[in-house]
């Protein structure tokens, strides 16, 4: 079993459009370390739902709890191999269903409309043997292998329109369609780093709408942009070496997501990103 330590930078920043319209940041993210494993989760509250900032917070809270129990009950944190991909996907669906049920109960006990809590979720479990990921809706996630090649971890769900996706509260839970909307992946190779982000960060950090001159078409390579991530990985490791606390790192990360380059500065949507690097 490989032993490694992970350093995280995690922040959510309110979008310019939300400030203008006087609505709260609807994104939420959370990272938690457990015994021999960690869980990172990001959630993007639906702009159409008035309590989605609460929904994204609750979904992160509930999912951390349920997925922690899943790992411990299955003993994945003590195993040399990841669970089979099919098993992980089945258990991810069941666990997300528990999160959804708790969200429903929360809405009833607080007299809130269930759909008003709509949000997406991307969740990663960092195990000694690799990385497990599952998600509902849009956003992006990627990882960097030991050869410093960046690859996508998920394919965001988009409808016909550019700004259309599904949420944990959507009608996606029927067995006949659920696999279209909940997707899971496992990566067993050595992972140097990974990122999870809401769609407010995607244009700044992923190649997601390029033009193919030869074919005359636009396409989404869904590719983490090395010139965005690699300098930040280096800085993250340096900050850790300098003895900076996670809270201090997160503060600097927040500042970077706010206006670290023109693309981030001009983004109107809420921005959330977790960046993690292994320092084994």
């Amino acid at each position: 079993m490989r032993k490694s330590e992970w350093i995280f930078a995690s922040a959510s920043v309110i979008g310019k459009a939300h400030i203008t319209r006087n609505i709260p940041c609807q994104d939420y993210s959370k990272v938690q370390r457990f015994d021999n494993f960690s869980i990172a989760v990001v959630s993007d509250g639906a702009g159409s739902s008035e309590n989605s900032h609460i929904g994204s917070n609750k979904v992160c809270e509930y999912s951390l709890n349920y997925f922690e129990n899943l790992v411990l009950n299955r003993g994945w944190n003590e195993q040399d191999n990841l669970p089979p991909k099919e098993l992980w996907h089945e258990l991810a669906k069941q666990t997300l269903c528990l999160v959804k049920d708790d969200l429903d109960k929360f809405s009833m006990s607080n007299d809130l409309e269930y759909k008003s809590l709509s949000c997406t979720i991307i969740l990663a479990i960092i195990l000694p043997s690799g990385l497990l990921i599952t998600h509902i809706g849009d956003g992006r996630a990627g990882y960097c292998d030991s050869n410093l090649n960046w690859n996508p971890l998920i394919t965001p769900f988009h409808g016909e329109l550019a700004n259309e996706t599904v949420f944990i509260t959507s009608d996606i839970w029927d067995e006949s369609v659920i696999d279209e909307y909940i997707r899971s992946e496992s990566i067993e190779t050595d992972i140097k780093a990974f990122c999870l982000l809401t769609d407010g960060c995607e244009n700044a950090s992923f190649e997601c709408n390029l033009f193919d001159q030869d074919k005359g078409i636009y396409f989404d390579p869904n590719r983490p942009f090395p010139l965005f991530f690699n300098p930040n990985l280096k800085i993250l490791a340096q900050l850790n070496d300098q003895g900076m606390t996670e809270a201090e790192i997160n503060k600097l990360w927040e500042k970077f997501l706010e206006a670290g380059n023109d693309r981030l500065k001009n983004e109107m949507d809420d921005k959330t990103m977790i960046l993690a690097i292994s320092v084994s």
Partner: peptide
């Protein structure tokens, strides 16, 4: 302190 370049993505159309 953190720094990184962004790719040249084209915009969605409206």
């Amino acid at each position: 302190m953190f720094e990184g370049q962004s790719p040249e993505n084209y915009e969605q159309k409206c």
